[in-house]
Nucleic acid binder design. Structure first.
Lengths: 119, 119
DNA sequence: CGGTATCCCGTCCGATACTG
DNA sequence: CAGTATCGGACGGGATACCG
């Protein structure tokens, strides 16, 4: 049952899924929600360098894909909390593997890059 | 030793690593090399929809990062083989997890997307 | 606080054609 | 076979300012 989709096919929808995962900020946002719900400004503060525009777009995309949920408490002052859905939490596992790999192998890759001739 | 890098820091070099992983064709090329060395045209045929330009760029980038190696046999007609380096093979593990997740959860995500109002 | 609204620029990437 | 050359367009995303 797990082989119903094959990413190598040109028309396979799993490509759009991979595209979303590969988007600039997805990994950061999903990871930032790993420990529980967070508010907009919390996320913005935690993910250094992200602009409100990028954060909004990322949150909306992830919500559209059912990976996170948005809960507006409808208070004043406003309070909105974002949280991973069960689907989003399941993504956390492979994403953590990728993140750890990245953090682990930065030196190797930087070494390889520095071996390049600088044009 | 594994926490020397933290992707949440704005200046963290692991972000460039993630960026490379997230690039349009990286996942496909790395996965296509999982079973051993392959030639340019083999890859192009296996990864449906990729243009020679995109394939070349992806291969060069991966080579620059030390993830794949390029072996020109210097024959006529030309024969060039690409293969994963040990570093590239280590990436295969987290990438496979991501690919499987994507293939597995396509239905969930498509369902979520179809629940969206179509503007 | 939790976002929008603009503006704008780079770069990614597809299509197509050509070459050693 | 294994690429390069060229063009052009879509889009992601940064900077900045503003709003309910």
């Amino acid at each position: 049952m797990s082989k119903a989709y094959n990413v190598m096919a040109a028309t396979c929808p799993s490509r759009t899924v991979l595209h979303r995962i590969g988007a600039r900020w997805t990994v950061f946002v999903v990871n930032a929600l790993a420990d529980g719900p967070r508010r907009f400004t919390e996320l913005k503060g935690h993910i250094r360098g992200i602009t409100p525009k990028a954060l909004t777009e990322t949150l909306r995309s992830l919500e559209a894909d059912g990976l996170i949920s948005r809960h507006d408490h409808d208070e004043n002052p406003p309070r909105v909390e974002y949280a991973l859905t069960p689907l989003g939490r399941s993504l956390l596992i492979p994403l953590r593997a990728v993140r750890l790999w990245a953090e682990e192998h930065v030196p190797d890759i930087e070494a390889a890059r520095s071996r390049q001739p600088v044009p």
